[in-house]
Computed example of a mutant assay.
Amino acid sequence: MEMTDLRVALFSGNYAMTVDGANKALNRLVEYLLRQGAAVRVYSPTIAEPPFTPQGDLVSLPSFAIPGRNEYRVPMGINTSIRRDLEGFAPNVLHIASPDFSAREAAKWARDRSIPVVASVHTRFETYPQYYRMGFLEPVIEAWLRKLYRRCDALLTPSPSMIDTLRSQDMNDDIGLWSRGVEHAIFNSERRDLAWRRKLGIADDEVAIGFLGRLVLEKGLDIFGDTILELKKRSIAHKVLIVGDGPARKSFAERVPDACFAGFQTGTDLGRAVACMDVLLNPSVTETFGNVTLEAMACGVPVVAADATGAASLVDNGVTGYLVAPRDVSAYADKLQGYAADPTLRKAHGAAGEKKAEAFEWDTINQAVADTYLRVLAHKGKSTGN
C-alpha cells in the first residue's frame, strides 16, 4: 500500500478552536498527508470564527462549551449524520487525537468494521485535576484513558519520556514516537529585537525571564509565580516577560504584578517575542512534548523546565538549560539566579539549544505518522486474511 491509498478519518476535540501545540501539529500533519496524495477528513467541534484557517475538509461534531472555559467545546458523540458521513468517506484508518466521547464512539465504529485505530496522545489529561484541587480523580481518569487506548492498534506520542510514561501506565504495547517540528524561519535567534523589549520597559542589560503559552492553571502558573517571588526575596534583578493569554490572566497578573504582558502573538511577532527572552521558565508537567520549550531553544534561549514528560526529552540538563524537580521553587530560583549572574553561561546554553533544535523538521516527523498508518493497515490485512 502507498501513501496515496490512505483514507484517514481524524477525530479531534479541538482542531481549530484555539491555537496550541496539539492543534498546530494536527493541522501540519493533515497538510502533509494531503500534499502526499492521501485523503483526509477531519471531525471536530467548530466555532463561528476560528483563530486560523484549518487544513483539510472539516466536519463539525455536535458539542457543548465547557462552563467557565468556553474557548473549548466537548464533543458529544457521533450522531446519525456523522455516521453517514463516515460511511460515505470510507476511511481505511481512524486517527483519534483526544479521548472524548466522539472519539470513543468513532473508535468502536471502526473496530466493528475491522478498520485500524491509531490514537495520538497530546497532553496528560490525568494530571489536570491536581490544578483544580481534585487530585483524587487522577487514577480514575487514568483508568478511563486505559480502557480506550488498550483497544487501539497503536499509540503515538511526542517524546521518549512520554512513551515511557504510557508504558508504565500499561496504556498499550504498541507506542511510537510522533515528535514535533519547529518553524525555523520564525523561531531563531536573529529575531531578537532590543527596540521591542525597550517598548515593554525591559532595558538591554536586564535579564528577561519568560513565560510562553496559554494562561491556564495547568501550565504551572502557581509555580512560576512562586519562583518569581523567591527571586524577589533574594533581591535578584530581573524582568518578567509573559507571552500568551488565557482565562487565568487576571489571577496570574496578581501573582506577578510587575510582569510585562505581551499578550497573544503569532507568526514572526511570536518568534520576536520568544527571542527577546533571556531565559524561559516552563514549570508545566502536563505536556507530552513541550512545543514552547523547543521554540525557545530554536531562538537561542536557555530553558529552565520541570523534569517531566515533554521537557525531559528536549532539555539536555546543564547543556541547553536545566531540569528541575517539578514543584521545587527553590531549585527553579537557583537556576534562574545562576543565569542572571552569568551572561556567558546563558549564551552558551542558548547556542547549544539552537543547535539541537535544528534537527526538528516537520516533514520527516510527519512521515513517521504515515508510516504508522501503513504498518497497522498491513498488520490488520494479515490478521483478517486480506
Rank of each mutant, 00 (worst) to 15 (best):
M1R: 08
M3Q: 11
M3E: 11
M3D: 11
M3T: 12
T4A: 15
D5W: 01
A9H: 00
Y15W: 05
L29R: 00
Y32T: 09
L34G: 13
R35P: 01
Q36A: 13
Q36R: 12
A38N: 05
A39C: 12
V42I: 10
V59F: 14
G68E: 10
I78D: 04
I78N: 06
N79L: 05
R84Y: 12
L86A: 07
F89K: 01
F89P: 04
L94C: 07
I96C: 09
D100V: 01
F101V: 15
A103Y: 00
V118P: 02
R124W: 01
T127F: 09
T127H: 10
Y128G: 07
P129D: 06
R133M: 12
G135W: 00
P139C: 12
A143D: 12
W144D: 12
R146F: 08
T157A: 08
S159K: 02
P160Q: 11
M162E: 12
D164C: 03
S168L: 06
M171L: 14
I175Y: 01
R180T: 04
R180Y: 08
R180F: 07
E183Y: 08
D205W: 08
V207H: 05
I209M: 06
G210Q: 03
L212M: 14
G220P: 02
I223R: 03
I223Y: 04
D226C: 08
D226F: 01
K233L: 13
L241V: 05
I242P: 00
G244P: 03
D245T: 13
F252C: 05
V256F: 07
V256G: 12
A262W: 01
G271F: 03
A273L: 02
A275R: 00
V285A: 11
G290K: 00
N291V: 12
T293H: 03
L294H: 05
E295K: 01
M297S: 10
A298E: 02
G310S: 05
G318E: 07
G318Y: 04
V319D: 10
V324S: 09
A325W: 06
V329C: 10
V329D: 05
A331D: 15
A333D: 06
Y339M: 13
A341G: 15
A352V: 07
A359T: 14
F360C: 14
T364K: 14
T364S: 15
Y373I: 02
R375H: 11
V376A: 09
T384L: 13
